[in-house]
Structures are given as C-alpha cells and as structure tokens.
Write a protein that binds this DNA or RNA. Structure first.
Lengths: 327, 327
DNA sequence: CTGTTAGCGCTTTCAC
DNA sequence: GTGAAAGCGCTAACAG
C-alpha cells in the first residue's frame, strides 16, 4: 500500500504534474476539463499532498512553535487552548515547548524550532532579552510575544492590561476601607510582575498610603505560603502577585489562626480555574487567558500570511472580580 | 544572510556532499583528515542540517503528535509535561492537539497529523473505536494509547491501575466504617470510568454492600455539583469519578448545610494539583500523571526507533491518598 | 492554458 | 574511503 504522490495523480488523470499542482493550489487557471479529471484522479487514488515536500519547496511548514514556561502552571492551559483552537481553524499546527523560564533552554528551543522550520513563534519567556531571538527576528522569523514583552526585541505582542487591572484592584481595596497593604509579587524578571509593581507604586503615591510593603518572589503557592509565615505585622490586606500566591497566603493565614477576610483580606491575579472555588473564593483580577492566546495566534498568522511587518501590540482588558477573600 | 546548506559545507571543506552527510550522521566511516575538515567547516559556517529536507528523504520527521481531550482539564498538563520532557531528551518535538473527545475531530486530527508525517502518535481519545486509527496502525503508524485503551485497535498502551486504585480506595472506606456509597462517575464512554465502575461493582458484591448507587455522568465540577443537589438520601460517602467531580460534590454539600467529612465523606480520583489544598483537602487516588506521559513517550520512541513491533501495555500503580474529606 | 524541467537540502546507492 | 548522481514530492519558472 504505497503512498500515492503527485506523479501518480498526473498519470491517472493523463495530465502533467504541474497541472495537478495548479488545481491543488489554485495557483493558476486550469480548464474545466482537465481540472475535473484531476479532481477525479485525486479522489480515486486518495491522494494527499505531502506537507513535507511542500515545505521543502516553499519554505512554509504551516507549523508554529509556542514556548511557554510550564504547561503545568494553571495560567497556561487556557492560553494554549486559545492558540490551538485558532491555529486549527487556519490549518496550522502547534509545537509546544516548556522552558521553565530558563533563558538557556529558551534559547535552545528557539534553535530547535527554527530548525524545524516553523513559520512563526509565540513566545512567553523569562524577562531577559535574548540575542538569539533578536537575531532570529532580524532574519525574518515572525514572532509574537505573549503575556510578556522582552525589551530589545522588536516584535508584536499581546498582553493583558496588567497596569489597569492592578490599579483597579487597589482602588477597589481602598474604597473598601483597606489601608495597609502587603504585596507578595512574582519574580522580578517577569514583565507582568514589574508592571503590577509599578501600578502599586503609583497607587501608594496617589493615595499617600503610609503603610505598605512590597516584595518580589516567585509566582508559586509556596512563595505565598512561606512569605506569609514570615510577616511580622499583619496588614489589612495581602496582595498576591497571582492566584497561586494568594492560595498560599490564604492557607498560611488560616494556619496562623487568622480569618480571611475577617482578619485579613487577600487578593490574587489571573482568575485561574479554581479561584472561584477556593475557600474563601478569591477576589482577583481576571485576565482573558483564552482570548490572549487566540489574539496572539491571530496576529502571528497575519504576520505570516499577509506579510504584515508593522509591529503591533495588543493590550487586552482585565477585570476585577470581587469574591469572598475581601470584604 | 542566506541559509547555509550541505553544499556550502562541502565546498568549504573541499569534500563531497556525501562525505559531509556521512560525518553528520556517522553513517559510514570517514578518514580523520576529512572528518575534521568537515567539522571545521560546519562550525565555521554555523551549518545546521535542515530537518525538513532530511524528513523528505528519510521519511522521518522527529515529530510526534499527541491528541488529548482538552489541555484545560487539570488532569492533562502534567501528562503533557511528562511527554514533552522525555521527547526533548530524545530530540523529538511535540505537536499538541485538543479533540474535546469528539470522535469526528479525533479522526480529523489523525489525518492532519499523518499529513504532517509524524513519526508516531500518542492518543488519549474517546472510548469509541476508530476505523481511521485502526487503518493507520495497520499501515504502520506507531501509536501508543495513553490513559485510555480503544478496543479493536491493536497498539501499545500506558494506563494507570484504575481498578486497583478504586478497589483500594473502597476498601479503605469500608475499613473506615463507611457503609453506604454513592458513586458519581465520569462518562460511560471513557475507559477509566468503566474500569472504576467495575471495581465498584466487584467491591459491592464482595462486601455484600446493600446500600449503594452508581451513575455515569461526566468528568466535571458541574457534574458533581448538580448530581449531589439531586440526591434524596445522603449516603455515608460520595465517591467522585475524579477530583473535579469531588470538588463539585463538596461545594454542593456545603451549600446544603452538610459538613464534610463529619456528615458525609467525599473522595476523588487523580490527585490533581489542587486536591491537597481544597477545603477540606481531598481523599483521592493518585495517578502518576507525569510518569504516564513519560512512559508513553518512552514506549513510542522505542516503537519508532527500535522498530519494536511487540504490542505492550504498561499499567502504572496508583495510590490511595487519605486526607480530610473522609475520616 | 499546459507541459517540461530545474531545483528545495538531504541521504544513499553505486562506482571507483 | 570517497565522490557522483539519483531521487524524496512538490512548486514555479520557462516555454510553448
């Protein structure tokens, strides 16, 4: 049961391979007569053009790469889903890679993916600028940064409005009467952590907040848990850099005999799947994860197919979600 | 900045392309003299062989496909991570596809992936047998089934010991004094749900349990929540087909004013990330997700590279994890 | 409109 | 040991 190729089809339809190619790709006019003979033959033989040969010829593989820190982090699955759903519609295929935010691995992955002749790259990386990527972009690789922007690399990006989200959250907290703030943020290297910090700083200044504290740590449950255990003077509210951190904060607080939200308020960021089921359910800032993925994929495909070169950035809106971890 | 190819290297090293190919692939002896010249040239030119051309020639793409229901379901990310980590080590690349367990989509995806010339396929599908897959396997596609076995398709598989896990869980519950059981299971089509049901039936018979109930629904939070709300007579313990279902059960129970575990016990299956942080923390059966992914990838690569044809199945052990949702 | 032909970059006989 | 040359399956000039 040998694989049928374009030659077989040509023979069957008694035309040349170029004619077959033309009807497949609609790349040039073909007379109705021949066209129908070709279509007939294709159907009869069950012919499927080889993506790989086509790729060799055209340089296009209809494949895009996506480098993320870790699919195991609940923030990413929805993004990936948004990406994959859109790509599927456009007949593209997704190669997924986990980098653990290690710049060295990220750089290796870029190489691997370029080797695989991806048509474009979606990148959610550590914050550091990468020469490799910069170079690749200059060489014409289409890249869209997702959730995180890397300075120095001139490429399109999709992020959510971290600044506004954090600002709105803080203003809600202020209005709710919270006056002392403890912000356990994610890693300093991460773009979104830095932006959220900036919003925090601006808030503190604008409202002349006296009693506040900020610390960069990492976007994990453990970070929230451990840092909370070390807090000397409990503030009115502890702000987690993301929901995972907030979960850790809540659990630590409970172990310390403190009630959330009666004794302390706790907030997160992201609104991952479980935040509405957490006990107490988590006040947080919703990021449109699925939309971010979809939008980024959309931009990338536009970049690839329309040859658009204009660098564009999209900032998707965030939304404060008030639940029971604050009052 | 043109891409350098094997010819350029050959010219630079003053040898033939075949010699270059030989040293790259170590496919035939080459004299030390030429070999070092070639290596030199490769380094100097920064040459990287094109996977795609190689693929066209050899028919191998060093790419494997993975069809899963939905990466957004917390059960899958760890599996995917296990797969990807192993594949990376072996210089393979992962194409990820979500099927939503729709047999039609699954079948389309198989086509798409075959078109892309994957070297092998990891498949976690709906329960139904698929002619397409069966055919593909017969045509030589290497397939490993992950978490779910499809009847009628003769291929290797990796699953966890669902039967033993459920059996052990039930026996623990029995010993703990639970006497009436309500099992809200996942979807009837799913392999693991059926196995767990069988274990339940065998348990009920062996221990002559009088008071029990079983229902197939779906592996979701909502399923657990909704079915619980409809229960007339509350049993000693409600068994969720997976952790998600158990979460829904717990929340519904609480809304109904019932205490877990004081009034009712609740158990899950899988031990996903959040189960240890749920309130109350969930008694469940741990499946080695990461290991399953890794093992499946390992088997697939063995199938591909060693040309092993022996169909093999692996059943990975599960483990009852006792937490605070039972007593 | 249609066919012929030259590669895309690589591997692999087949001679030497 | 080494090189020349024939493709893998397809697309895109180039003729006609």
């Amino acid at each position: 049961m040998k694989k049928v190729n374009i030659k077989d089809v040509a023979k069957e339809a008694k035309v040349s391979v170029s004619t077959v190619s033309r009807v497949i790709n609609n790349s040039a006019p073909v007379s109705g007569e021949l066209k129908s003979r070709v279509i007939e033959a294709i159907k009869k033989l069950g012919y499927k053009p080889s993506h790989i040969a086509r790729g060799l010829r055209s340089g296009k593989t209809k494949t895009i790469g996506f480098i993320i820190p870790d699919i195991t982090n609940p923030f990413f699955p929805e993004i990936v889903r948004g990406v994959e759903d859109y790509l599927r519609k456009k007949d593209y295929t997704l190669i997924l890679c986990n980098s653990d935010q290690d710049p060295k691995i990220e750089s290796e992955l870029v190489d691997i993916l370029i080797d695989k002749h991806i048509d474009g790259l979606l990148f959610t990386g550590a914050g550091e600028k990468s020469e490799k990527l910069e170079l690749a972009v200059k060489k014409g690789l289409k890249v869209v940064f997702l959730d995180r922007i890397i300075e120095g690399v001139n490429a399109s990006y999709v992020v959510s409005d971290n600044y506004d989200g954090m600002k709105s959250l803080l203003e809600y907290l202020w209005k709710a009467g919270y006056r002392s703030f403890y912000f356990i943020n994610g890693s300093k290297e991460t773009f979104s952590a830095r932006i959220r910090y900036k919003a925090f700083l601006d808030f503190v200044e604008k409202y002349r907040v006296k009693d506040y504290h900020h610390i960069f740590s990492s976007f994990s449950y453990e970070a929230g848990y451990n840092h909370t255990k070390e807090i000397n003077r409990i503030p009115d509210v502890i702000i987690g850099g993301n929901d995972l951190i907030a979960y850790g904060v809540i659990d630590a607080l409970e172990e310390m005999g403190l009630d959330v939200p009666d004794d302390v308020g706790v907030t997160g960021f992201d609104d991952i799947l479980f935040s509405k089921h957490y006990k107490p359910s988590l006040t947080t800032v919703r990021q449109p994860m699925y939309e971010m993925g979809k939008k980024a994929a959309q931009m990338l495909i536009a970049l690839i197919e329309k040859g658009v070169n204009k660098i564009k950035g999209y900032v998707l809106p965030t939304e404060v979600v008030i639940r029971n971890s604050t009052q």
